[in-house]
Structure formats: C-alpha cells, structure tokens
Design a protein around this nucleic acid. Structure first.
Lengths: 243, 243
DNA sequence: AGACTGACACGTACGCTGTACGTACGTCAA
DNA sequence: TTGACGTACGTACAGCGTACGTGTCAGTCT
C-alpha cells in the first residue's frame, strides 16, 4: 500500500464519488472499492457512515473561499460573502444536498460566521441584529442552494427537460399567464435578486437603528420578542469593542 | 381485509411512520407491517420508494392552509401566506425534511404559487418581479424550515442539549462575544425577523417600480440587474409595519 | 532477545434494505 | 364456462451498514 488510508483520503474519495455518481450512489463498499481497500478498513478512521457524511459536509463547507476586502462598503462585503457561500453549489453541486441536509457543528463552520458577524458589526449593527440578520441571510442562501441543486442536480443544463408548468387557466390564471417565467430560472439572476432585496432591507434597518440611537438612549433592551419594528436602540453597555 | 389498500392509505401510513420514528426509519417493510399487509402489495399502488416519498412530500405540502383575506393589505397577506407555509414544520416536523429535500412538480404545489402570485400582482408588481420575489420568499422559507428541523428534528425542546458554540476568543472574537445569542434560537422570532426584512424590501421595491412607472414609460422593466445599493428611501413607506 | 501492546487492514457474517418475479385468488366480460 | 385482469402475497436476490474476530506489523518495555 503506497499511501496509507486516512480519514482525509476517505472523505476525498467520498466527495469524488458523490460528484461522479450522485449522493444516492454512495456506500461504504463503493468508497472502499474506489480506494482499493477492504470495507471494514474505513471504520478504523470513521466511526460510521453518518459521521463520514458529516465530514463530507464539513470538508465541502470549509472550502468556501472568502476574499474579504475590509476597505469595501459593508454592503459589498456582505454580497461577496453570500456569493462565496453559493459557490460551493457550483464546485460541488451534488455534494451540496449533503451539506444542506445535515447541520454541522464544528469549527469549520465558524469561520464564515465570524466573518459575517464582524462585517455586520462594523457596519453598525448591534449583536442581536447581527445574529438575526446573519440567520436571515443564511436561510435565504441555503434555500437558494436547495432549489438550484434540486432543479439541476448536476448543473448540466438538461436540454430536453421542460419545467414549464401547464396549468388550467381557469383555476390557475396567474400560473398560466406567467408559465414561461416560471418554467425557466436563471439561478444566478434569481439569487442576486433576492440578495439585493435582503441587502436593501439591511440598509434600511441600519439607518433605522442609527436614527434611534441618535434620538436618545431611552428605550433600551430592544425587545427581542417585541413587535415594535423601530426604536431598538440596543447597544448600550456592549463592551465588545470591535473596532 | 376491512379496508382495501390504497395509495392514500399508504401515504398516510408513511407520514405517520416518519413522524413517529423519523425519516431514516422509513422502509417499505415497516410501512407494510404498519398497514398489516405484505411488502409487495404496496407496489400495486406505488411504483417505488422514491415515488412514495414524492407522494409524501406532495401530501404534506397540500395540507398548507391558506386563510387569505383579499381585503387585507398585501403585505399582511404575504406575511400570512409565508407563515402558513412554515406551519407544516410544526404539524409535520420530521416530514418537513422529506418535503424540502425533493422538489415536487405537481398541481398540489401550484395552488400556493397561484395565491402568492395573485397577491403580488394585485399589489402592483409586474410578472417578472412577482415571480422573482416569490422565489426569494420561498428560498427564505425553505431555508428557515431546514434550520428549524435540523436543529430540533422533533420540535421537542431538548433540555440537556447546549448549542452554544465555544470558540477561541482570539480566533473568533465575534462568535465568542455573541455565543449566548448564537447558542439559542427562537425560531419563531428568527423567522419573523427575516420575513420582515423581505417584506420591507418588497415595499421599497414596489414604491420604486411605481415611481418608475409614473415617471414615464421609457425605461421599462426596471433595472433587474441594477446594482444600486443605497438610496432606498428608508423609513417611509412601510404602512403595514405590523401593529 | 523476547514479550507485550497497540494500530490497522481485512474477511466473514448478520440483519436489514428495495424490488423483480412468480403465484394465487378475487371479480367482471364475453 | 372461460378468459382476462387487478390485487395480495411469498420467495429470492443483490446490495447495504457494521459487529466481531483474526492476522500482520511497528514500537516499547523488561
């Protein structure tokens, strides 16, 4: 055996196999065969299949490349980070479903979070807003990825396929009238559209917060559960300097 | 055999089983056993397991209840529809992962789409904006559902579990400082927060479109790809705030 | 040197899976 | 009566994850 069996080699082989034959085709036996080893040898490095898939998710996730430019406008930085996240769907399309299907709790997932939070904090959001906003962005990105890989699992533009819905015009007038728009989907453009919406909303929110802060320090607390949109004015006492 | 085997009965049994024992526990043999029939009898009504899971997804999806009030403000109607969508995660938490994992192409999925498009069109959006906006909302909702069912698959608030991330303060200062916020997550509130962001952005967008229309019929279509970040005319506009 | 120990590759085996196929038994049409 | 047909069912097969035992080798202690 020239190269020793390794957890990293196993994960790499798994990703390779998923990308070649799809997530359903993965099995411990196939991975072992691809590596030229016996099945049970894998279990010396990975406790079970679920853990292996977790490792696959973590590995793919950790390959997100951030080219953060701290001097750029915060909106641009948020945009760049969101796009970087989405890139995994292009580099590892068939593994993406595995990634989004299992939540990962590991340091690998913390770095993007750290970046995003830092960006939002520097923009002027307090901790609560930053966390909630991050969650909103992540939810949107994950949902977008899911649609992308669901519709085109391989990202190969299947030519013969027709997604145009044909609906009874009487029952579904809107769907019928917009069938051509619903049938096609430029994922890139769709993603940017929603991303624009979120970023614009974030800009509005930031302005709101700043106005509230300027108006006075009165209403502290910023009711988490409170339904009042404006007048959050949290900030007070938050010592976490964060330049 | 009192009641004859039926596709509907099979699907119902499958959903039941998933909710009782989780999506991983599902198998044709278990379903057949629950129904008190032989395994192969299922195949008289369902071509294969994948089709059965598709049917499960469709069934769950079709149970979304819309209580649309056409007289309400469009922002409120959008909010209601989004919440209705999210409700499936509460009624069928463990099936939700099945729903979001497979894209469904059936009439069952068209009714919510029809409702949403009609609402957006009535608000004043053109077809393109309505479709793109709908996709944005769906992506956000799906992503939110995925986090909800991922973190708490059974919606039973696991007491012993601690999701608080413990990160090296030097490497991850933000994550460390906001650990308590990151550790807990009120899904309800998180969902509403992002939903608010999207609805506000939609309000801004609508205003933009209307102004463009009023200004003249010249630049039709509106800069879909336009990158203009700022100048969104913040605080005004939102009439539906939430009161 | 000899003995012991741990890590690791591997084979076998068990219970489980989805489902192709053949069979048996109903009800209807001719 | 006869045949066709739909449906329930049993058997069988290939493949799955993985528990368990066995063999080999490197390193360490006496």
């Amino acid at each position: 055996m020239p190269t020793p069996l390794t957890r990293a080699r196993i994960v790499a082989a798994a990703i390779d196999l998923i990308e070649r034959e799809g997530a359903d085709a993965i099995s411990m036996r196939r991975i072992a065969a691809d590596l030229g080893v016996g099945v049970m040898s894998l279990y010396n490095h990975v406790p079970n299949k679920a853990a292996l898939l977790d490792a696959v998710a973590e590995s793919v996730y950790s390959r997100i490349e951030f080219t953060d430019d701290p001097s750029a406008e915060w909106t641009a930085r948020v945009r760049v980070q969101a796009r970087a996240f989405r890139q995994i769907a292009h580099h590892y399309p068939r593994s993406t479903m595995v990634v989004v299907s299992r939540q990962l709790r590991s340091p690998a997932g913390l770095l993007p979070v750290e970046h995003a939070l830092a960006t939002l904090r520097q923009a002027g959001f307090d901790g609560e807003d930053a966390v909630r906003m991050l969650r909103t962005f992540i939810a949107y990105i994950i949902g977008s990825l899911l649609r992308e890989v669901g519709v085109t699992p391989t990202f190969a533009p299947v030519p013969g396929q027709d997604h145009t819905p044909h609906a009874d015009p009487a029952l579904f007038p809107e769907v019928h009238g917009l069938a051509s728009l619903l049938g096609e989907c430029d994922h890139e453009e769709a993603f940017e559209y929603g991303l624009d919406m979120l970023i614009r909303a974030a800009v509005v929110r930031l302005q709101e917060v700043k106005e509230a802060r300027a108006a006075g320090e009165a209403g502290a607390g910023g009711g988490v559960k409170g339904r009042g949109d404006a007048a959050v004015a949290g900030s007070g006492g938050n010592g976490s300097a964060r330049g």
